[in-house]
Structures are given as C-alpha cells and as structure tokens.
C-alpha cells in the first residue's frame, strides 16, 4: 500500500538561507491521523507549506496522494468587509472540484450546510462572515476545508482560539474524517491532545521523533522538542505515557 502522505529526507528553506526544517522522514496511510508537535518556530507551518506545494523542497521529496490537499492556514487573512455569509464561505470549498466558472449546485449547498453543522455552526449559516468571532471564523474555514472533500487534510493549529466545547466537537470530527478514509495532519501546541492521534511527529528545526503516541510522547522526546518551554509532569498518564504541558499553553492545575 502506498502512503497518503510521505516525506523523505525533506529540507525546506525560505529564500537562500539555512533550512527552516530539515531531515523530515515520515509516512502516513490513508484513514489515519497525524499530530504535528513543535515549539513556536519549530517548523510545523513550514512542513504544511511544503506539503501544499507552496514551498519547494530544498532537498528530499514530499508526496501527497489523491490530488490537492485541503489546507487550513494558521493565520487567517480574510477580508472582513467583504459581504459574504458563513454559508457562502463554506461553499467556496466546492471550487476545488475544478468547475469554477459554473454556479454552485444545489448539492454543493447541501454539503456546505452539512459541513457548517459538523463544526457546530449550523445556526450561523446566514450570518455575515466578517461579523463572526475569530474562533467562529476559524470553524467556518474548517468547514470550507471539509467541503473541499480532499483525501488529505492539512490543518495548521485549527483549535487555536476555539472554545473547549467546540474543540471537543471538532476533535470528534477529526475522528470521523479519518474513519471516512482521509489522511489528517493537525498541528497543535496541546501535547495532551496528541494522544488521540494515530501518529505523532515532533519537529524542532529537525525531526525529533515520529511514531505512535505511546512511543513518541516520552519525557526525553518532549524535552528535545520543546527545550525549556516544556513542563513534564512526573505522574504518568492513563496509558503510561508521560503527561506534559507547554508553558505558553499552561492550563493544567496540579
């Protein structure tokens, strides 16, 4: 079986300088999910931009099966004064079918509505996109990525700024998308949430580790990934892996 997403000996650089990300080597099968962990500046976004083809590899190769991946960028740069509804934005995902010159079909509309429902925004479909909150806009853009119906989804910190209840719903959604046979790559700063993924990739300029959460989420790997930013809690978690939080997202009481 060929991998849905693969990188081999990958190095990516901006301009002529030294690579921002090096020695990346992993494979992800269809129907599985990967959590990308790393500190600020670790190279998570750089990896995604290499996978979308926006950045050409300096060395090595990347491959993404099944056509253009859906991509949810970390920083949304949307025009808030542009008059479109949340539904209109979700519907833009259907442009990925290639027939951009035709109006959206009724079935596309239904798909867009369903996607808004999946991110918990069914009741905001008619609202002006620019008048939604930041977290709501992020969820509408996630809905747009879902409407795209891609085999591979690249989601760069999709839960940043999303409230806990919505985050829980969206984490369930990740599971559903994976069970539909898609490959899912999600970057996050929330080390604890990485446990729910099939694979974890730790990057900090170099690839630090890749594998199943139980193998990867060790004190040693997390310390090498995050350096001084990590607080490793000594008590082991329910599945035996260490528990840890990154300092900038310190939200555990202990």
């Amino acid at each position: 079986m060929t991998a849905a997403v693969a990188a081999s000996g990958l190095a990516v650089a901006y301009g002529g300088g030294r690579p921002a990300l090096e020695r990346v080597e992993f494979e992800l099968a269809a129907g599985s999910s990967l959590c990308v962990l790393g500190p600020n500046g670790g190279g998570k976004t750089t990896l995604f931009r290499a996978l979308t083809g926006e950045l050409a590899p300096l060395r090595g190769t990347v491959s993404v099966a099944g056509g253009r991946p859906a991509y949810l960028a970390q920083t949304e740069r949307t025009r808030l004064d542009f008059p479109v509804s949340a539904l209109d934005v979700a519907l833009m995902g259907s442009l990925a079918n290639g027939r951009w010159w035709l109006p959206a079909r009724r079935s596309d509309r239904a798909t867009a509505r369903a996607a808004l429902d999946r991110v918990g925004l069914a009741d905001r479909a008619g609202d002006r996109f620019g008048e939604l909150s930041g977290g709501q806009r992020q969820r509408v853009l996630l809905a747009r990525a879902i409407v795209q119906d891609a085999r591979v989804l690249l989601l760069d910190e999709p839960l940043a700024g999303v409230d806990p209840a919505s985050a829980e719903r969206i984490e369930r959604l990740f599971g559903e998308l994976r069970d539909e046979g898609r490959a899912l790559l999600v970057s996050t700063h929330d080390v604890d949430s990485a446990r729910a993924f099939d694979r974890v990739l730790c990057v900090n300029h170099d690839q630090i580790a890749f594998g199943a959460p139980a193998d990867v989420l060790s004190r040693e790997v997390l310390e090498r990934t995050y350096g001084a930013e990590i607080v490793v809690l000594d008590e082991p978690g329910p599945d035996g892996t260490v528990r840890a939080v990154t300092v900038q997202h310190h939200h555990h009481d202990h």
Binding site: T78, R79, M92, L95, W100
Partner: peptide, 22 residues
C-alpha cells in the same frame, strides 16, 4: 458571471483560494 466565484474566493482570502486550486 463566469469569474464570479473565483473573484469572490480571491477577494475573501487569496491564500485560501490557492488551496482550492484558484
């Protein structure tokens, strides 16, 4: 008429339109 959807997608966010193949 033909360009309406691509124009709207790029006007909203050019980076996002790119990942939709526009």
């Amino acid at each position: 008429v033909a360009l309406h959807r691509p124009l709207a997608a790029v006007a909203l966010d050019a980076g996002g339109a790119r990942s939709l193949g526009i």
